Amino acid sequence: MSLKLHYIPFTLQFKFDARTSRGAIKEHKVYYISLSEDAQPEVIGVGECAPLAGLSIDYRPDLEEKIKEVADLINSQKVKLEKGAPLPEELKLQQWPALYFALETALLDLKNGGKRLLYKNSFSRGEAGVPINGLIWMGDADFMQEQIAKKLKGGYTCLKLKIGGLDFGQELEILQSIRERTPADCLTIRVDANGAFSPQEAFKKLERLAKYDIHSIEQPIKQGQHKQMAELCAYSPVPIALDEELIGVLGKDSKEELLDKIKPPYIILKPTLVGGLASSAEWIALAEERSIDWWMTSALESNIGLNAISQFTAQHDITLPQGLGTGQLYHNNIASPLQIRNGELWYEQEQSWGELPS
């Protein structure tokens, strides 16, 4: 099988300044990777390489150089890709998780006919939706309240609020206002601190958050503080979900060591950050062996990456809302069959995919 790899740089433009405790994001540079066979050049598999500034280990100035290197190796047939097989070690992609995810999904798409249908399941057939949380971005109190009202009107039964960017008292007031309108048996609330709390203040803040029947908090303290995170997981009144903590943890042994040391109630998987779908599947298996629950989340990819993650997610028994409601973030997203209805993500088969940028 002789494959050709092409790539297209593209800059996604946010509809608003997407704020986290790490700062605001206005745009997101991505690379679309396409694979085709010489014998059938019209059949094209597509993947998305979309590392995030300040978060992804492969958000580096030499990323495009690495993509060119991989393209040269594949196009010259010095390295051969096989449909259905892991990516060859000769590509040296261990430190390039976003690129691994892009190649892995492009190859899977090509294997299945280049129609953006990577898996055959009830979701990709348009028979079932995937429950998702409504994402509430940081901003002033009015901006956050406006988002909350829209999500509740849209039928969401689970909201995720980014916290750590406003005065903590203000954030608690916003949570109080939600709970006054909607009790815990009608609405699940998750919060994401993106590592904003210091280890010294974290437990007291978690105690205050617990008053609002919070389902979970993502990454209360910065990653890499394993002893402190393990203590928080053991004693926190709000269950903790590891997110950034998983980034850069490579290989099965390292994953097992992390889970056994910290013992989190939940882990959150972003394939772009943790090394693709196969790596995510390994995390899921290890977590389930330890009775650790999990959910998948987009790392702000466009609809190309979001589609791959959503179809992969639907291959599993889903017990919790997933973090896959990011398809409406960009002015210039790729048109897709992905649609949100009543707090669920659906694949509307009658809708067509838009063209990739040239």
Rank of each mutant, 00 (worst) to 15 (best):
L108W: 02
R290H: 01
K211H: 15
F123E: 12
P41M: 05
L93Y: 01
R290M: 01
L187S: 01
S279Q: 13
Q176R: 09
G251L: 00
K151G: 05
Q170W: 03
G114S: 08
S254F: 00
F143V: 04
Q176C: 10
Y156C: 02
T188A: 13
R208V: 04
D260C: 11
M296L: 13
N332M: 06
E37R: 15
R19Y: 08
S291H: 08
G134H: 00
E146C: 05
S291L: 12
S21V: 09
Q170A: 12
L300P: 07
P61S: 09
G195I: 14
I33Y: 05
D109H: 02
Y100K: 14
L345N: 08
A314R: 03
Y119W: 13
W96R: 04
V79C: 06
T157G: 08
R60S: 15
R208A: 15
L166Y: 00
K160M: 00
Q219A: 09
M229E: 03
Q223T: 14
D213S: 09
S254R: 13
P337Y: 06
E173R: 08
L250R: 10
K153E: 15
G154D: 15
R179F: 11
E218Y: 03
T313M: 08
E90Y: 01
Q200D: 13
R19H: 11
F197G: 07
D142T: 15
M229D: 10
S358G: 09
P41Q: 05
A98F: 03
K15E: 07
E355T: 12
K15R: 14
N112L: 01
N194H: 07
